[in-house]
Amino acid sequence: MADSYPAQDEGYPRRLPRSHRTGERPRRRGRKLLIGLLVLLLVLLVGLVVADRYAVGFAEREIGTRISQEITREGIKSGPPDVSVNGFPFLSQVIAGNYQSIVVVVRDVEAPVANAEAVHLPELHIDAQDIRASINTLRTGQGQVTAGTVDGTATIAYDSVLKLVDQPGLQLKEDGGKLMVTAPVQVLGQAFTVTGAANLKVEGAEVALSFSDLDVQGLPDIPVARLAVQEYVRRIAIRLPLPELPFNLQVQEVRPLPQGLSVRATAKNVPIN
């Protein structure tokens, strides 16, 4: 009797599983796998960014501490420094032992000046580029940390400049990119006002301050009066000692700003540890 039943292949088609007929389940599994990989990749990237930013914060705190110690060692008083480590990612810079840029801002600086009172600098801005420090140096504290270039800018308040000039009644201000002076002068028992422009020139650790194109309204056009004005001009034409700056910064330029004299200084191959 077994021979009376037709074989399954002969009379009845085989019924395939739904997944094989439609292809839905393999595609669904593929999508889930892809989404899982993307989520995992995203989590890893977020973790790396968080770790990178944490390392930056740690480095900025450590650098701030070391700079505070350096500033104190050089006899400079100031507020706590603000440090920014630039460049992303930071961890790749650590591995390479080369850092793009470190910017330091120090406020309320009282910098010593040779044979004079300390000069007040409202803000000292330092930008160190191309810093070289191996992982072993950072780990052990032994070895050299150097910056290829260091640029510093600071502003000397006019009040501090006037203390160094030490001439009663003298006033300084910026006008049209020039340093202008206004001062009282006594000529033949009469009071006059001198106005004019100042010339600034960096000479070593000093700024030569001289005046030209001075005008004295109402001054009698007589030799005695002119000599009196010339003598006063010689008294206020002085050499201003510049404050000592950290990291062996050497002043390159001084120019007037509304808030004071802007000092720009640079140094190369500077040890910063």
Rank of each mutant, 00 (worst) to 15 (best):
L41R: 02
D9S: 14
E62N: 13
E62W: 10
Y54F: 08
P6I: 05
N86T: 04
K178R: 12
N273V: 04
E117P: 01
R73T: 09
V254Y: 06
Q171Y: 09
R264S: 12
Q190I: 01
E74D: 14
L40Y: 05
G87P: 03
L242W: 04
G169H: 08
G218F: 11
A133F: 07
L91R: 03
G218H: 10
E253T: 13
T155A: 08
A51T: 02
M1N: 07
R31A: 12
V233I: 11
V254A: 14
E62V: 11
I236P: 08
E62L: 12
L249A: 10
P26T: 09
G260F: 10
G97C: 02
E60K: 02
T72L: 12
V83Q: 08
T155K: 01
P80V: 10
M180H: 03
V83M: 11
E60G: 04
G97L: 01
Q69D: 15
V104F: 06
N248I: 03
D3R: 12
V56W: 00
G143H: 07
L33C: 06
A228K: 08
D159T: 14
A198P: 03
V83P: 08
V83I: 15
Q167V: 10
E70Y: 09
L214R: 09
R14A: 15
Q142I: 10
L45C: 01
A96G: 05
A7M: 08
